[in-house]
């Protein structure tokens, strides 16, 4: 039998579903308040997860839709994709010294570059696939 309050590690363990099974939280307001505080910190931590650049997600969607539409990418598409990757790397290399994580605003230019480059270089559409993407263009978000 244990008595006394839960320590921090026990509270954290509880947060992850593996805390002590002595029912202490039911009877101790103090520990319950601490546990609730940890719970809201966990939620905050989840909210503060990194965002993903919309252009990256758009490119990823197109790639999936491409695969749905036509199987393996053509050699031409491969080359185009490689060209985009190379240009992005160049863009990064040319960029100023500290591309730290607070980069969403700093890289809205990247986003535009990505989109421009992507649209001009990578989007030489095989005829058969084009009508499929028409659907997405109309549905709104995919083509951004």
């Amino acid at each position: 039998m244990r008595n006394g309050h839960w320590n921090q590690d026990e509270l954290i363990a509880w947060l992850y579903g593996v805390g002590p099974e002595d029912g202490h939280l039911d009877s101790c307001g103090e520990c319950r308040a601490k546990a609730e505080r940890l719970q809201s910190r966990m939620t905050e931590a989840r909210m503060a997860e990194p965002d993903v650049h919309p252009a990256f997600l758009a490119r990823q969607r197109r790639s999936v839709l491409d695969r749905i539409a036509g199987g393996a990418p053509s050699p031409a598409r491969w080359l185009a994709t490689a060209a985009v990757a190379a240009m992005l790397l160049m863009a990064v290399a040319l960029q100023s010294p500290s591309p730290q994580p607070e980069a969403l605003t700093a890289s809205s230019a990247d986003t535009e570059l990505f989109e421009d480059v992507f649209n001009t270089v990578a989007w030489a559409e095989p005829e058969a696939v084009a009508p499929l993407y028409g659907l997405f263009e109309r549905s709104g978000e995919v083509s951004r």
Partner: peptide, 15 residues
Amino acid sequence: SAEDEALVLAFAPAP
């Protein structure tokens, strides 16, 4: 590299 990751991910400011 951090540069590559920064092209894809952007951390939201902490609350």
